[in-house]
Structure formats: structure tokens, C-alpha cells
Amino acid sequence: MKKTLFLLIFTLATFVAAQAQVGIGIRAGANLSSFEGDDTDGLESMWGFHGGLTANVPITEDFFSVQPELLFSKKGAESEDDVVKYKLSYLDVPVLARINAGPVYFEGGPQVSFRIGGDIEVDDQNVDDDLDQFKATSLGYAFGVGLGSVPMGLSVGVRYNGDISKLNDNDNAADWRNSLFLFTVGYNITGRE
């Protein structure tokens, strides 16, 4: 997994360095995450956060671009009575197609996620931090909408991320998938006019 992650980061950095008009930025915000699928009765959404790096590679001037990102993201769910909490940490690598329509933008594309940590808590006590029952890698998708200001380099948006992959391969385990909304703020460091 570490080699795959390093390869993705290296590829992203090489691609960015090769492009003259690439916008490099940062993104951060809040997550409202939950599990979807079978046997999710009794589970509710919980708040987390995300943050990381973005690149924006223009394909056509001021209209269409490709936006790869590397984001640390807290995901999970909790029981309705707040007793049991599933807290999972991921490195998300979405590669989004982005359409700019004036100050409004639309984005969507595939995402790969690498689980890098997490724990299960019961009554605020850690009961399991060896989460090998959850897959180390998952595939998913992302789509969203937002407002951006090219001269200032700022953007705000809402994005939905969903997993195609189940959280685990065990046939006896619940059929859960990550599902979350991101409320995000971005700042483009380079590539502004």
C-alpha cells in the first residue's frame, strides 16, 4: 500500500511539474459521514474533517479542467445512542472533471481511498484500533458543486463521496460502504490571474 501511495503522489507531482498553467491549492472543511448498505439500522451520521492538496489542470481555457487531489479524511458512523463510534481515517485521491460556468463550478469523477487508521470506541473508550477487518483500499466516486473566484483563488463547495467497494470482504460482516458529504473551502496558491 505504501508503494502504491508513493507512486500516486510521485505521479501527481510529476504531472503537476510538467504543466505550466497548473493551479496548486489547499482544501479543508467538515465531513458528515455515515455507512450505507445492508444492516445500517441503528447507525447515524457523524462529523469529521478533511484537508489536503489540490491541483487544477486546465484542458480548455476557463471552462474545463481536471482536478486531482490528495485529501486526509475522517469518516465513519455512530450508533443512535452515541455509545458505539466507528472512526476511520483515509487518504482520498479523487480525480475530478471540473466544468466552470462563471463563478459556479461542477465536478465529478472516480476516487480511490487508502485506509490509514481508525478505531472503534464504546462509551468513549477505544476497544479496537487494529481494524484489519476493514479493507485497506476502496474505490468510489465524487461529485459536487461550488462557487469560485479565480482572481482571489478562493472557492467554497459541497461534495458527495460514495464508495462502490464494501468496507470488508467477510461474507459474515455487515455490507457497509462509506458515504459522506464534504463542506469544503479551497484556496488556489498558483495559477490565479
Rank of each mutant, 00 (worst) to 15 (best):
K3V: 12
K3A: 02
T4D: 10
L5I: 15
L5N: 06
L5Q: 06
L5Y: 06
L7R: 09
L8G: 07
I9Y: 14
F10L: 14
T11R: 10
T11L: 12
L12A: 13
L12I: 11
A13C: 07
A18Q: 11
A18V: 01
A20F: 01
Q21F: 00
Q21D: 11
V22L: 01
V22H: 10
I24F: 09
I24V: 07
I26F: 06
I26Y: 04
I26H: 11
R27L: 13
A28D: 04
A28M: 12
G29Q: 04
A30N: 02
N31T: 09
L32E: 08
S33Y: 05
S33N: 03
S33E: 02
F35T: 01
E36I: 15
D38V: 03
D38I: 00
D38C: 03
D39N: 13
T40M: 13
T40C: 00
T40V: 05
D41P: 10
G42D: 11
G42T: 06
E44A: 15
S45V: 12
M46P: 14
G48M: 15
G48N: 08
F49G: 08
F49N: 02
F49P: 07
H50Q: 08
G51K: 08
L53I: 13
T54I: 12
A55C: 10
V57C: 05
I59K: 09
E61F: 09
D62T: 13
F63N: 11
F63E: 06
F63S: 11
S65I: 02
E69P: 10
E69W: 10
L70T: 11
F72C: 10
K74V: 15
G76E: 10
G76T: 14
A77G: 03
A77Q: 04
A77N: 05
E78W: 01
S79T: 04
E80L: 15
E80I: 15
E80C: 05
E80F: 15
D81Q: 13
V83C: 03
V83K: 14
V84L: 14
K85L: 09
K85W: 05
K87V: 14
S89F: 14
Y90Q: 05
L91N: 00
D92P: 09
D92S: 02
P94F: 01
V95A: 03
L96T: 07
A97L: 04
R98K: 00
I99M: 12
I99R: 03
G102Q: 03
V104G: 04
Y105K: 08
Q111S: 12
S113H: 05
F114R: 09
R115H: 07
G117T: 05
G117S: 09
G118F: 08
